[in-house]
Design a protein around this nucleic acid. Structure first.
Lengths: 200, 200
DNA sequence: ACCCTACCGGAGCGGCTGCTCCGTTTCGGT
DNA sequence: ACCGAAACGGAGCAGCCGCTCCGGTAGGGT
């Protein structure tokens, strides 16, 4: 008992790792398409895997969704970081617009982010979602404060919350509609006054 | 066949009307507490009524929720109209704040409103929700335009959408947090520049 | 006081969901 | 080639859901 290694040896079998990856991909795809309430059978079917396989790799459906979301949020944070230009305000507004576009294509994405809001019941499982994107938002806010374009009384938490709010409507209305609301919100965040709206 | 009256005679039995009211109250209460996905058994239990009674009065669960929501939205619109002062901007911002407070107490309320957004699938059933509050928002927007405090490029649809977005986060964060976001949004809607935030 | 009728209640049906169990297959070290 | 451990698949279980069905009950006109 005392001699067993802390972590099991490297994947003893190749198909195990492959199937684990397929499950994560399938789960991520289905979450994106239909939100967080997916049928486990459908995940298994899309991954071309049996139910037993699914529940060997992940103790519960929640754990699988959680692992899949971690991948999604990590890649989001990576892509968002890569597209920074160093100009504070354009970076911030583009980050928000891109996040909402992403949310339009994957209605269930910010759904998960919302579940990680502080004070939510059972939030521990989804905390990593915020941990992926949270620091990035904090940095964007800090830079925008420094450049003087973001009103100083706005916190990263405010921006995060605003993103979640807009993310809840972005998938259910036509794109020009949510872009207008985003524009208004950005005007509210700016130190200067209002600017002309896009769209009709 | 041709001789049957267009509407059946007045409620032939007293308990029928009473139970109908109880069902509507129970449904409204449960929707408010837990959102739109309620167990019909629980509605019947709270109304102290059997399943058969429920499905005699309403052809489907959806129809019951729909009827209950109509009551809720009507009373909301009535209360909101009653608290108007005639000063355009305070009326508009108070309407929004009151709506969000209401939403905080009843997380499922704007959930239903959201389902009536134009372009949503199967939206016909919930259209009356918008029809209750929609004209009120339109009037508030018109008055605020006239007084010159609301930027002229904002439509009633914009305000309605903003309300839905904020309503989605109001129940899941502490009150000061969503009040800050509302304040920022109102600043974005105003023709003048930003004003100090409430809360910490 | 009577009876017909409309209304009441809740057991039960079919379908869906998360999860388990176990006989079978396959990997990979020897 | 061989073999044991590990992974595979999917039928099946328990519980939940919206909804129906039908024997019993009670309202209200006469």
């Amino acid at each position: 008992m005392t001699s067993l290694p802390a972590a099991a040896a490297r994947a003893a079998r190749s198909d195990a790792a492959r199937n684990r990856g397929r499950l994560l991909d399938a789960a991520a795809g289905l979450i994106a398409e239909r939100g967080s309430d997916v049928d486990v059978r459908e995940i298994a079917r899309r991954a071309e895997v049996g139910m037993g396989t699914l529940y060997r790799h992940f103790p519960t459906k929640e754990a699988l969704l959680d692992a899949a979301l971690e991948h999604v949020f990590t890649s989001w944070a990576t892509a968002a970081t890569a597209s920074l230009t160093g100009r504070a305000w354009p970076d911030l507004s583009r980050f928000l617009a891109d996040a909402l576009t992403r949310q339009t294509a994957s209605p269930g994405l910010l759904d998960a982010y919302c579940q990680a809001l502080p004070g939510q019941a059972g939030n521990t499982a989804r905390q990593h979602c915020r941990q992926q994107v949270g620091p990035l938002i904090a940095e964007l806010v800090r830079a925008a404060h420094e450049s003087g374009e973001l009103r100083p009384d706005i916190t990263a938490e405010d921006v995060s919350l605003l993103l979640v709010a807009l993310g809840r409507i972005a998938p259910v209305v036509p794109e020009p509609a949510w872009r207008r609301i985003l524009h208004v919100s950005l005007d509210g965040l700016r130190t200067t006054a209002a600017t002309p709206l896009p769209g009709a």
